[in-house]
Design a protein around this nucleic acid. Sequence first.
DNA 1: GATGAATGAGGATTCATTCAT
DNA 2: AATGAATGAATCCTCATTCAT
Lengths: 207, 207, 207, 207
Amino acid sequence: MNAVESNSTAATRERILDAAEALFAEHGLAGTAVRDIARDVGLTAASLYNHFDGKQDLYEAVLERGVRPLIEIMQQAEAEGSEERDRGELIERVMQHLGTRPHLPRLIHHEVISGGSYLAKLGRTWLRPLIATGVAEMKRQSDTNWSEDEFPYVLGAWMNLVFGHFAMAPMLGIVFDNDPLAPESIERQTRFLQKLARLMATGDSEA
Amino acid sequence: MNAVESNSTAATRERILDAAEALFAEHGLAGTAVRDIARDVGLTAASLYNHFDGKQDLYEAVLERGVRPLIEIMQQAEAEGSEERDRGELIERVMQHLGTRPHLPRLIHHEVISGGSYLAKLGRTWLRPLIATGVAEMKRQSDTNWSEDEFPYVLGAWMNLVFGHFAMAPMLGIVFDNDPLAPESIERQTRFLQKLARLMATGDSEA
Amino acid sequence: MNAVESNSTAATRERILDAAEALFAEHGLAGTAVRDIARDVGLTAASLYNHFDGKQDLYEAVLERGVRPLIEIMQQAEAEGSEERDRGELIERVMQHLGTRPHLPRLIHHEVISGGSYLAKLGRTWLRPLIATGVAEMKRQSDTNWSEDEFPYVLGAWMNLVFGHFAMAPMLGIVFDNDPLAPESIERQTRFLQKLARLMATGDSEA
Amino acid sequence: MNAVESNSTAATRERILDAAEALFAEHGLAGTAVRDIARDVGLTAASLYNHFDGKQDLYEAVLERGVRPLIEIMQQAEAEGSEERDRGELIERVMQHLGTRPHLPRLIHHEVISGGSYLAKLGRTWLRPLIATGVAEMKRQSDTNWSEDEFPYVLGAWMNLVFGHFAMAPMLGIVFDNDPLAPESIERQTRFLQKLARLMATGDSEA
DNA sequence: GATGAATGAGGATTCATTCAT
DNA sequence: AATGAATGAATCCTCATTCAT
């Protein structure tokens, strides 16, 4: 009974996180009402406080849950070493993951744009080490069009290209009259980015 | 005297737009309090209502004022015809303009991410025609690595690269420890994008 | 020029009173915005203050202008003496006047129901003397069904019958599917009240 | 416990309705501040929103609660059939009820005068059927002074006489120097109206 | 006499949060 | 764990009024 009970509450917690993620992604922290999150879960606002300490706490839990797998993908790629690693494969993994959690990029964009308090943690603690590795990696590669002081720009560009596809989806959908979040759109964007990666690295689109 | 008078009231309107632009860009529509905009202008919230019909109206005026010059830059480039036009020059013009109005990309990101009501107008009325021209243009060029059905992805990528630099500035600043909005950062990003443009078009970074 | 000028301002004053009368009658003092009155006259709210000291002042001017002719009708009837006076004729005169100023009864109802400050003046200064005369008059008449202590009820009934027709017009219109303010409706109501007056006085509908 | 709980919250709702009824009757919808209603109940304005959806909703609930018993009295009288029914008794019942809820007539007057949105419902849904029955009833009676096309005027007159006594109470109180809402005043007005009813029906005040 | 701009006061409503049940 | 009720703090907005022009 206890197990079931705590299963059930863990499930509730997760459902709250799901609802919150969707709403925070769409309306941002300020634009999302606790009551609306609760409603989407089938609860009262008061009940949320049995699971989270407050709106801010819930928001951070959503970010945490969303960002962690991304970090892990990057760290794993880093750990696998440069030999086995394939630029294209990393792109694919990240795109695949974001296709599963399409709210995440918008969530992060909101946070970044607003210069939220979670931003520093995100940037300094997680992104910076990864970037360092990325730069180190680029240095070791010889087949590149970029000089060392251009590396940050290359990495920034990748960040914008990958996240932008998801975050700007509503606009892209209108402009190009398709759904950028549909699996096949993600697939095509993945291939496009892989091709671009080859171009950027070697100037050879078939490399 | 009359000129001064209308100068003064027009100036007030402009000052309100300035303050609103900064706050909306940082906190979004929901996260910005009318009273805070007013305070930044040195007015009471009530006074704003002598100049705008409400928060929503003000928000749209800010977007309108911000987006219009962008559209004009694009339309002008389009009008100049393909001979005289230089890919690199368009990138430079847009980057220069956004350097002047660094709030704009965040503003647009907010709007896009939230799927705001202004979005449809933005996309359908202004962006789509420009995209159409862009696509037509790409078709006419032979020195390209891209097939026709990849064009939208190329154009989407450019949108994300240009706007992303400004919108994600807070994060980039933390990660790379510099100020992406500083003139020389913008300059370098411009050169980076121009180089990338050459790569994307021909696979030759020195083209 | 001066004469024209002051004519024109007097006319403006009157137009303001007209607009205010209509709005106050419909929405009451609290429910009417100064700006709406101004708009109906083609002015700005600020301009009203060139003609009236404020909302309250304007309201009282409207009441004053509306009530005065009523008082005069009553006083004139009183002055004419009992011989020449005809119950039916007084009813007719009042009904005719109210047909001309159909807002007045609603205006007065608002004031009465809210126990407004003008009420006491209205009641004590003007109505009470008239009532006194009315009572005296009824006493002198022998052809009546009413005892002396019923007189106030009779007079109150008349007040409600006459004013009610106009004040309750919106409801009567719905219930009976006609327009109680149309001249012929007023005409018929007048004849109805005259017949009722004969009944009340003598019990004889043909008297 | 549950019963107490739901008693307590239902009681709060009722207390809000009581306070709102009094204030709406005196100042109308526009003239009444939600905060004042709350204060009279011993609550914060925000708390009212736990019980009602807003000012308008509360207003309609007050009207609904007030009008329903009236409708029921009329429908019951109608159902009892004409034999057992006594004109005088219906008058008495209505007067007695209004004596209990003296705010009601002013409330309705406000609504009628302002042509409020509840008015149509009131008139069309409830009053019109009753009027139809009233007219049918009058037709069946032979001892009357009125022709068929006068019936609406007779019924309108009754409406004004009964409601007017309460709605115009503040003015009547000043003019006749008594309290029209005191039980004995209501009693006397009832007897006056009954006598008037006999006069109107047969021309015989002793019938 | 008319008006645009400014404002203090207030007014309806929302919101995050607490707490007793 | 869930909730109805309560609330202080905000938020958007309206309003009557003033004043310089």
